[in-house]
Simulated scan of single mutants.
Amino acid sequence: MKEFTLKQQGKIKRLTNETFKFDERVGEGWFSAVYFLKTKKIVEEHLSENIVTMQFFQKKNDAVLCGTDEAIALLHTFADHPEDLEIHSLQDGDKVSPYESVLTVTGPYQNFGYLEGIIDGILSRRTSVATNVYKVVKAAKSNGSDKPVIFMGDRDDHYTQQAGDGYAAYIGGSTAQATHAMNEWWGKQGMGTMPHALIQMFKGDIVKTAYAYKETFPDDDLIALVDYNNDVITDSLRVAREFGNELQGVRIDTSKNMVDQYFFRNPQIMGSFDPRGVNPELVFALRDALDQEGYHHVKIMASGGFNEEKIQRFESMGVPVDMYGVGNNLLKINIGFTGDNVKLNNEDEAKEGRRFNYNPRLEKVDYPVNQD
Rank of each mutant, 00 (worst) to 15 (best):
V52P: 00
E86D: 08
Q162G: 04
E246R: 04
G187A: 09
M317T: 06
K147T: 03
R287K: 10
V239G: 00
T209L: 02
E363T: 14
E315R: 09
F264T: 10
D154T: 15
G277I: 07
T77I: 11
R25H: 14
G164S: 13
L75D: 09
Y228K: 01
I233C: 04
I12C: 09
S255Y: 07
V326N: 02
T16R: 13
K147M: 03
G29Y: 13
D154Q: 15
Y134L: 03
H180A: 10
K188N: 09
A63F: 00
K95W: 09
V133C: 01
K59T: 10
D156Q: 10
V298R: 00
E308I: 02
M182S: 11
I87P: 00
L225E: 06
P98Q: 03
V137W: 05
F284Q: 04
Q55D: 12
F243L: 07
W186G: 01
P148A: 01
D274K: 10
D291Q: 07
M194V: 09
K256Y: 14
Q292E: 12
N334G: 09
Q189E: 13
E49V: 08
A169G: 01
N266S: 08
Y159W: 13
F22V: 07
D84Y: 09
L90A: 05
R241I: 07
I42R: 14
D227Y: 03
D69Y: 08
F112M: 13
L15R: 13
A33T: 14
